[in-house]
Design a protein around this nucleic acid. Structure first.
Lengths: 144, 144
DNA sequence: ACTTATGTGGGACAAAGTGGGAAACAACGC
DNA sequence: GCGTTGTTTCCCACTTTGTCCCACATAAGT
């Protein structure tokens, strides 16, 4: 399971080293795509196949699902992990997520998210405040 | 069942020894996550899997559950217990809970909580004052 | 008082993360 | 065609952090 939070640096050559804890589970070929709330989603090849299949199953019927499928599929990029555990972030994804020198990796079970540091800090601060309320709601379904 | 209160020290290397009474029940691999009221939650691998599964079942459709899943999952860290019964607290969790040199372990049935000493003292003092009121509320449902 | 268990500290070593240079490659102008 | 420029890829090296191991101190039990 992919969990945890790590701060890494995106260097001038657009290289980004993956946290060691994620390397084994992600494998040598991974998929990076546009995510929600302005971050990037990272999947292992295997997980990506499942996601792609589910997006395909949504069908062509509705405009909104077509849009979401395009968002995820067209925004996807297959990248190799190099010998020192680093990946190259394509320009359009770097721009999309507004990645600067400092980025945050966040493991969320089946995927890893890549955030611009400032956005992540702002997001977590907001969620922290809401966490108590959310916990109460979820408590009702026995989650905690 | 995990019960009791223990004061331990977090050293310069961010090492923290677990109270002996908790070691057996928690096992060799444990999970530390962001908790509520500014403390950390500690679960055994087994307990954590139950929680992670329920969080996974929430799906990534809704914004609020996505937020809470990120809070709990990205806020989590799987840590090993070393040969002398110590764990390493990641930086972001140390910052989150504002842990200083002295911390408090509190056993709460299925989980252990880790508190900054001052927050714990303040929290318990507050709860003590409210205890009689809380007891009345709980008395109404036959708990006490 | 002696032995055992527990909590704490420090030093040595290994590994992770990061930066920079050299080689390979393509695009461009002269 | 040739050289220049800029980009990409690979490899090496440095710095910091994490990990392991051992030692000491205090407390508890015999």
């Amino acid at each position: 399971m992919l969990i945890g939070e790590y701060k890494h640096t995106l260097d001038d050559k657009k290289r980004l080293s993956l946290p060691v804890k994620f390397r084994q589970e992600l494998g040598k070929k991974i998929v990076v795509t546009r995510g929600l709330e302005g971050c990037l989603f990272v999947y292992s090849q295997k997980e990506w196949n499942l996601i792609a299949q589910q997006l395909g199953n949504l069908g062509m019927g509705q405009q909104s699902t077509r849009g979401f499928a395009r968002f995820m599929l067209a925004g996807a990029s297959e990248v190799d992990v190099d010998s020192s555990g680093r990946i190259l972030i394509p320009d359009f994804l770097k721009d999309f997520a507004e990645l600067k020198n400092k980025v945050v990796f966040a493991g969320v079970q089946t995927r890893v998210e890549i955030w611009n540091e400032r956005s992540w800090d702002a997001y977590t601060r907001r969620i922290e405040k809401e966490a108590d309320v959310l916990a109460e709601q979820l408590g009702g379904i026995g989650a905690i």
